[in-house]
Amino acid sequence: MRFDLPRNVILPVDAVEVRLDPGPHPFALENADAIAENWQREIAANPALFDGTVVLLSQLAWRDNRLVGRCHAINYSTFMLWRQQRENTGAEHAYAHAMLVAGDNALVAIRMGPHTVSAGRVYFAAGSFEPIDFRDGLVDVDFNMIREVREETGLDLSAARRGVRYHALSTASGTVIFRRYHVTAPADEIARRISAFVASETDPEIEGPVIIRDAADLPEGLSPHMKPLIEWHFSGEG
């Protein structure tokens, strides 16, 4: 099987061994015309979109607490068509979340800005893996997490205490790889820092911070994959 991992359950992950294949993704080759046509519709609806480079999986498996897989660099326009179809495409999406844990054990997430594809959605600051996130052909998950948090919130998590291991949750919409990052400041202070950064940006990617204080504190616009992550954190697991 191209994709062989349990779905809808949180998995312990001691290593992520996802390799970047230099060849094109079969989905991109087989759907070139449809990708171009769909992209014209997408940018007509949202001119702020940028056709950058992300990666899309062609294989992923969970073996002995390791995630092992293969991915390919694709244009964002390819990703936009794929996300409309998903099933039976021979492709899946994986992304990473730095689960930001404040000194008072609250979680600090973000709400995406109105000009983005995920406008109004709440999740931990994150972005798709890009070729810059790979070292010697293998994905560097923590580099991606730290880079995305810095770009979206202005926070530098490079010196933050990290959870012992990663965890992963795979659903029909994709696989999120996450890890706790502990910051000593209380949630309100972290939120103030993020808000100040957003106010200083000419074109911020996020609307602002969202504090989550317990498992029942589920904000409007919460992405579906976030609920089990929040419950997992406040249960004290991991």
Rank of each mutant, 00 (worst) to 15 (best):
D51Q: 08
E237D: 11
D51G: 04
N144G: 04
P114H: 15
W232Q: 14
A196S: 02
L107Q: 01
N88G: 15
S173P: 06
I206S: 00
D4R: 12
S170N: 10
T175M: 08
D136P: 01
D136R: 14
R70Q: 08
A28C: 05
M1Y: 11
D188M: 03
D156W: 02
D14N: 09
N75F: 06
L5R: 13
S195W: 11
E37H: 02
R162S: 03
V117D: 11
R180S: 11
R121F: 14
D214L: 05
R150I: 09
Y95N: 04
G163R: 03
R63V: 02
E220I: 10
F143G: 07
L138C: 01
L11C: 04
L56G: 02
M112V: 01
V164L: 08
E87K: 12
P12A: 03
P114R: 15
R147D: 09
D21K: 01
I211D: 07
E148R: 14
R2N: 05
L49H: 09
F124S: 00
N88M: 10
A125I: 11
A44P: 01
R2A: 15
A172V: 00
L157Y: 10
G208N: 06
R70W: 01
R135M: 08
R192K: 05
D136A: 14
T171W: 15
R180I: 00
A48G: 08
P186R: 05
H72N: 08
F134I: 00
I110T: 14
D33M: 11
A168E: 06
D133F: 12
R165E: 06
M226T: 01
G90Q: 04
Q84E: 12
V122C: 11
E92K: 12
N105K: 06
V9L: 12
N75V: 10
P22H: 05
A125V: 08
F124E: 00
N8P: 05
H93C: 04
A160M: 12
S158Y: 08
E152V: 11
R66W: 13
A187N: 10
P131T: 10
P228N: 06
T175G: 03
H182D: 15
A215R: 09
P186Y: 00
T171F: 13
Q40E: 05
S200Y: 14
A168R: 05
A159S: 13
R179D: 02
F197W: 14
A172E: 15
A36K: 03
R179I: 05
A215L: 03
Y181Q: 04
L67M: 13
E231C: 06
A191M: 04
F134Q: 01
E152F: 15
A191H: 09
G221Y: 05
L56F: 09
V149E: 09
V117L: 10
V210L: 02
N46Q: 13
A15I: 11
W62Y: 07
L155W: 08
P204H: 10
L169R: 06
V54P: 01
H97W: 13
A36C: 04
T153F: 14
G154H: 02
L138R: 14
T153W: 15
